[in-house]
Write a protein that binds this DNA or RNA. Structure first.
Lengths: 122, 122
DNA sequence: CCGCATCCAATAAGATACTG
DNA sequence: CAGTATCTTATTGGATGCGG
């Protein structure tokens, strides 16, 4: 398997298709946290401390527009909004899993990639 | 970016580790095209028509700094520069593979995600 | 010519404050 | 609680220029 199963045509790289829906900086992380449970806005905020409310709201709306996430509003006081992976979003699980696996292995080192790279590359 | 306190605090989502090295908009695509062969700058340009020279050069330098890509300069006229995946870069293959698989399945539809989402989600 | 570098406009992301 | 509104900063896109 290779990048060039496009033997003749000028087909777009399939990876760009993924980028199209996962392109936002925090989108994979948000989806990852929705993987095992439905979450509220404030829960996601706590789980992703470095994200701002603005980006969380914005990315959630984009993910919803792309059909990856389902938003449910409970008209209570105080308001309650829940986000869940849609079935379409679930199709991305293998991708997130692969990312997660790599991340777990290279977690410590990734913040000083040059060193690990040297260690691995020799 | 605050990442150093992995010791004191609970670890980050591993996905963020991947984002740290694949974070650039075109980085996964670039790596993907280096997967099966060493490529020249101009080859990558042709394979990723939508990327600008500036972003290609910039991302390639970042990927090199992160040890994912090896850059080889041939001091000829006209100049020739080749880029290849390093062994460290090769560890990302499963991630790119997963992305590619999803992309191939959802290629046509991803440009109109809402429709597919409706079809899948019901 | 090839592989960039540099300047400038456009877009995405971050910080902070405020509201129904 | 779950967001907006607004401003500032970082990242990306486009065009041009230049040394080898």
């Amino acid at each position: 398997m290779a990048a060039a199963n496009a033997t003749t045509e000028e087909r777009k790289c399939p990876i760009e298709t993924v980028i199209h829906v996962l392109g936002g900086k925090w989108k994979p992380t948000i989806l990852w946290h929705l993987l095992d449970a439905t979450r509220r806005f404030s829960e996601l905020e706590k789980m992703i401390p470095e994200i701002t409310q603005k980006m969380l709201a914005q990315h959630l709306r984009e993910l919803e527009a792309d059909g990856l996430v389902v938003r449910t509003v409970y008209p209570t006081v105080p308001p309650k909004v829940e986000y869940a992976l849609s079935e379409y979003g679930i199709t991305l699980v293998p991708v997130m899993q692969a990312m997660c696996n790599w991340g777990e292995v290279h977690q410590t080192s990734a913040w000083k990639p040059t060193e690990v790279a040297r260690a691995i590359n020799g």
